[in-house]
Design a protein around this nucleic acid. Structure first.
Lengths: 354, 354
DNA sequence: GCGGCCTGGTTATACGAATTACCAGCCCGG
DNA sequence: CCGGGCTGGTAATTCGTATAACCAGGCCGC
């Protein structure tokens, strides 16, 4: 007897010996193999012995024999930084678990060497597939080695178009957000967008396109002065909201490209003595669960359907979808809270500090 | 040639055949086994063949043969809910990776059946150990099955005292937070604590004890009216701060048992027209990176050293520490920002709405 | 009274890598 | 000219499981 129970574990041979049968019998009985017949008494003996000895199947032996492992690799560039990363993993894991699979996760933090090495390790473990997830929606280069296994790109798009991908419907989200404000009666609607590090940020581009489309459809010519670029953090929302509201013709509503930006806008508005939604209406994006419901007033925003996207990624993997660059886009539902109201009489605004 | 490269993968036998040597030679050469001698030419041929065929070792065969796998199990009850969960995983994974190990993660979301099943699966995969992590510091019951393998309880304590555990120094943290306020000159210091669902919440108890010790040491008799219990969310901070400040003898400083509570307090103070830290000083706990730096003013708070704790958990696992219930406590460093100042003249306060 | 067919199992093998034991050929010393 | 040692490898076995192939004994039919 060693430190932790029996180190190498009880094997089928041990069970067989204890039950007075052959190893094959143990395997067949325990797996309840179809088309085999054993006496009820033998089955009992086998099960009893297995329980008594604490038998647990050795997954490695099984995989070696069967050729395919019950694991899925999940490689992300984040986890630590993105508070909603957990949502993606939650969805992926839920689906994996339903299919009897375990998730082998690695978050690379952007370290390419670590990424390459982890992928090698995962492939060594014969994962059934790999989900390659990104912290934010962008266009990225997928490591070549992923071509050896079913793979799905999550929350981003493969530049080379070799892998199926899953991402949110950014344009539609931007449209819905803006439409919500238009429907409330707003005409001067600003947008505080995300900064695009490399000009390829679908989240920024798409949400902006949707914003413009909604305005145009409503017969409004988008005012370039009302489109501002923030940094995606609270400070970007703060600075830009401040600038917008103290400008010549301040908006009556602001669409913020993410909730953190909206939070910053709230703080700027509060500092200016403007109330949400009394003086200014605000719509966010992300529905970050630790933030949006707790802003005062609660933030009306678009939900990023991360749980569903995570699930779907694993589903695609398991479906063994034909390898192609097809992208699936998930709808971002509007989550209604209290940050939108009809615009105040124009006369009440104009200076930014009533 | 099938869909994803060679499905079952290139084996050593394939390499051996290609290089015109035996499988044993391939193994010995590729592993650079000590005490063996092969001609330089043979080595070259083997390496060339391995590269050409894209040989990758089958981890399962290796584990089966060697008896020990290069994986560590990480079971948590959160990920989705706790934004800082990633920090723990980040630390654990970093250390695991340095030791050449992969992390097999499962977040149970509190589902005991899933937890039991995942642990079974992990043990089947012969993980080198299991980190059993909790979302918040508490006393919990560790599943018996973990006795079969090295295990460490992270961010909690094992009720039965069978497993080593790692947790933050709550009491010291509460002391430092309170001391910071005392040193600034405050005498009436309130605390908005976390709710203890079962009366066994070390975070709440410990931080409170530290608070009391600091006050007592300073010759102040803790005023029970200044200790309030919130729900750990923004709303708990809001409601209690409102009550405190509109009470008979409002405090000049508030120690919030977590950052979210502090955020709520900020919002209540803003609503009352009180400024931080001009009218009221605030100290938080957690140093939540998406929150504390972005509050206005930045929140002075205590950092929960999750990355280090995660690392340490894996370290303990690998050290094969003797199994005992020894607990290690990590210091929570004070992170200084702008939410603490010297108290205003008492006369300026008193009503809560100057 | 013997072939055939159920019943209730067993034997043997493969999966892929690591490792131990062994071996052929050659050189050298005595 | 024979034994010993070195060089450069190979053969065989092991890990734990799944499964295809096989087999002994009893019973039945004809």
């Amino acid at each position: 007897m060693n430190r932790h129970g029996s180190r190498s574990g009880t094997t089928m041979n041990d069970v067989a010996a204890a039950a007075g049968v052959s190893q094959a019998t143990v395997s067949l009985v325990l797996n309840d193999a179809a088309g085999t017949r054993f006496s009820e008494e033998t089955r009992q003996r086998v099960h009893a012995a297995a329980n008594r000895l604490g038998y647990r199947t050795n997954a490695h032996a099984k995989v070696l024999r069967d050729g395919v492992a019950g694991m899925i690799g999940f490689v992300g560039d984040f986890v630590a930084t993105a508070p909603f990363a957990g949502k993606i993993i939650e969805g992926a894991q839920a689906k994996a678990w339903e299919s009897g699979l375990l998730l082998l996760t690695v978050n690379t933090g952007g370290d390419k060497a670590l990424e390459a090495a982890s992928l090698e390790a995962m492939l060594s473990y014969k994962v059934a597939g790999v989900v390659y997830a990104a912290m934010y929606h962008r266009v990225l280069d997928v490591p070549d080695v992923l071509a050896e296994v079913p793979a799905v790109v999550l929350n981003s798009r493969d530049r080379a178009g070799r892998f199926p991908s899953i991402a949110p419907q950014e344009e539609a989200g931007g449209y819905v957000a803006t439409k919500r404000l238009l429907d409330a009666g707003h005409r001067r609607i600003a947008m505080i967008n995300l900064g695009a590090p490399d000009g390829e940020l679908p989240a920024a581009v798409g949400r902006y396109d949707g914003y413009r489309r909604a305005l145009t459809e409503a017969g409004i010519d988008p005012d370039p002065g009302l489109h501002r670029i923030g940094d995606g953090h609270e400070s970007g929302g703060f600075d830009n909201a401040l600038a917008l509201m103290t400008g010549k013709q301040p908006p009556t509503a602001v669409f913020c490209a993410n909730d953190r930006t909206a939070w910053g806008a709230y703080q700027a508005l509060a500092q200016l003595g403007l109330s949400v939604p009394g003086d200014v209406s605000v719509v966010g994006f992300d529905n970050q669960e630790t933030l949006a419901p707790y802003l005062r007033p609660g933030l009306t925003t678009l939900e990023l359907p991360f749980v569903g996207m995570g699930r779907r990624a694993v589903e695609l993997l398991l479906a063994g979808a034909e390898r192609d660059g097809r992208a699936e886009y998930f709808e971002c539902p509007l989550v209604e809270r209290q940050s939108v109201a009809v615009p105040r009489e124009p006369s009440h605004l104009g200076t930014g500090t009533p």
